[in-house]
Amino acid sequence: MELFHFGALALILAACAMSCNMLYNHVFEWFETRYCWMRTIVVRIGHTLGFELCFMAVALPITAWWMDISVGKAFMLDLVFSLFFMLYAFCFNWVYDIARHRLNMRTK
């Protein structure tokens, strides 16, 4: 696969991830407010898994089409990246929650 072709896919998926992230977090925070969820580890795990499923629903067809492969092959290709970014997203959001909580405690 030509590097330019693969690089263009990476840029497309990055734009999709950013858009999905904004929309997903907006919806998630609406549910969080509506149902008074606390940002526990379990909620963060659900948040991370939910985002990954949402993003994969968008990314897999694009990847399959762009690379001219089946959705199954695109899934296998995306699986390793998804596991890495799921772990990254979970850790990032968890640290964000801790930092936001501490900042809120200082301002009160």
Rank of each mutant, 00 (worst) to 15 (best):
M1H: 14
E2R: 09
E2A: 14
G7S: 14
A10I: 11
A10D: 02
A10L: 13
L11T: 13
I12W: 04
I12F: 08
I12S: 05
L13Y: 03
L13K: 02
L13D: 03
A14L: 12
A15M: 07
C16D: 04
A17T: 10
A17D: 11
S19Q: 09
C20N: 10
M22T: 06
H26G: 10
H26N: 09
F28P: 06
E29P: 01
W30C: 13
F31H: 08
E32V: 01
E32F: 00
R34F: 07
R34H: 15
Y35W: 15
Y35G: 09
C36A: 09
W37F: 14
M38P: 04
T40Y: 03
V42C: 12
V42F: 10
V43K: 07
V43C: 05
V43G: 02
I45V: 15
G46Q: 08
G50W: 10
G50A: 12
F51L: 15
F51N: 06
E52I: 04
C54A: 07
F55K: 01
V58H: 02
A59T: 00
A59V: 02
L60A: 10
P61F: 13
T63R: 03
T63A: 12
W65Y: 13
W66F: 11
W66M: 09
W66P: 03
W66R: 07
I69D: 06
I69G: 08
I69F: 11
I69A: 07
I69W: 08
S70Q: 10
S70C: 14
V71K: 01
V71C: 02
V71W: 00
G72M: 11
F75Q: 05
L77N: 11
D78K: 00
L79W: 01
V80I: 10
F81H: 01
F81D: 00
F84H: 02
L87N: 02
Y88V: 12
A89N: 05
A89F: 06
C91L: 11
C91Y: 04
F92N: 04
N93Y: 07
W94P: 00
V95G: 04
A99N: 06
R100F: 01
R100M: 06
N104T: 02
R106S: 09
T107K: 09
